[in-house]
Nucleic acid binder design. Structure first.
Lengths: 233, 233
DNA sequence: GTGACATATAAGTCTGACTTTTTATTCCCG
DNA sequence: CGGGAATAAAAAGTCAGACTTATATGTCAC
């Protein structure tokens, strides 16, 4: 996915990134560039580039005479798509999935409200199309097709919100939804109520009813939270 | 702020990062590593490290035989604190400030609701303390002291939400609030209504009233949106 | 114990040579 | 004249080695 093997330093990151985010090196662990270069059988320059990238993600800190120190989790750039992907791929997956779902529950309703005000006619049409696609694939175990339209739907909402920061979460939502379909329990067809809600959101946006679009999306995200047993009784 | 001059490559980034995020090099512009190295009077290895960092922020893409291509804005890692800082420092400041304020309006109410459920007694106490600090400095042009407690208040809420991704936005909120106090119009004392709301949020969290904490925080963020003339009539 | 000094260590930097990939051009054949 | 294969060129990528610099730590005098 995304950008595999874009150079030697990327190859190193593919191993080191997941290892660090998985907690294999506890916060405070000290690595040495030369040693890492030997381990990965790359030159020091390549290793340094990899370290620089990890540093820009605030996963590690490089200091003279000390080495490359692994930073505590609270320092990490948890919004970096690469970091998110690494964590979703590792043992921290469930926790990462919860964090992201809570984030969705905060963002998406507001995004939908904004979209109802700002969506272009084209985006409204796209939204309706996506919702219809979800309906058409909501039964008969057409999970992949359903997922495709679901992802597209949420992407359009986030983009139509007109907020670049919301739009940037499209990839994250895609990853969460894909995860739900592939990894987690999702043998049965999707919840018909959820499908209906998507259709209604598309209608609300088209009708420029911001409050309704927001409320309906809130119901969708509440469903997502319930699936993960988040939510107090 | 944060980490100034952490090596030569950092120095280069301090110039190149703001330049790119400010749009000085339009999307699609091609730079050459050697040329850049000469311009900044650093070795190619240092320049390469800088490029790697920019690449990890998705500001540029490096390809063989082509050079370093500046990516369109929609590709940028707009959640990267460094990118946020660069953009806040440049001509795009107003737009960035709006994006961030809308983001806050989505996140903070939900965070407050969660905090009402999950905050430790210590965090509740901290919150009350911050709110009282705001009250104590809400008149007499004690803007700096007020800001200090305001920032602390929002930080505690975000942290107490128990969601790492929310917690990570503490720095962003700090930057927005600081910006409002320093750069933008804020000659007069803070709005008494806003101060009261903060006190009430602290009370609601202490009382474990999630719905109330969320609603009150929503009112705070609506105020922030209005200050920037966001919000449809 | 405290403060100044010496030392060792690991990151940081620079240079130059070489490799690899990809694009553009040339050239030959149909 | 057109198209496709061979070729050349350009820029990033990689590597090795030598040197510099900051700094943690240990040592010694006081």
């Amino acid at each position: 996915m995304s950008t595999p093997g874009r150079g030697l330093h990327g190859r190193v990151l593919d191993t080191l990134g997941p290892a660090i985010t998985a907690g294999e090196y506890p916060a405070g662990s000290v690595l040495r560039t030369d040693e890492l270069a030997q381990r990965f059988e790359v030159s020091r320059s390549v290793m340094r580039e990899a370290v620089r990238v990890l540093e820009s993600m605030h996963l590690v800190e490089s200091r003279r005479r000390v080495g490359v120190t692994v930073l505590p989790e609270c320092e990490w750039n948890v919004y970096d798509p690469q970091v998110i992907r690494w964590r979703l791929a590792g043992a921290e997956r469930p926790r990462q999935l919860r964090s992201l779902t809570v984030l969705r529950s905060a963002i998406e309703p507001v995004a939908a409200g904004l979209a109802a005000r700002l969506a272009t006619p084209e985006q409204c049409a796209e939204l309706t199309e996506c919702a219809l696609g979800m309906v058409a694939n909501s039964s008969g175990h057409r999970l992949e097709e359903y997922l495709f339209h679901d992802v597209a739907f949420h992407r359009v909402v986030l983009t139509a919100s007109g907020n670049e920061m919301f739009a940037r979460l499209g990839g994250v939502v895609a990853e969460v939804l894909a995860g739900r379909t592939h990894h987690d329990v999702m043998f049965e067809d999707p919840d018909p109520a959820a499908v209906t809600l998507h259709v209604q959101v598309a209608e609300a946006v088209r009708a420029r009813d911001a409050a309704r679009a927001e409320q309906l999306t809130r119901e969708i995200t509440v469903g997502a939270l319930q699936e993960l047993d988040i939510l107090a009784p």
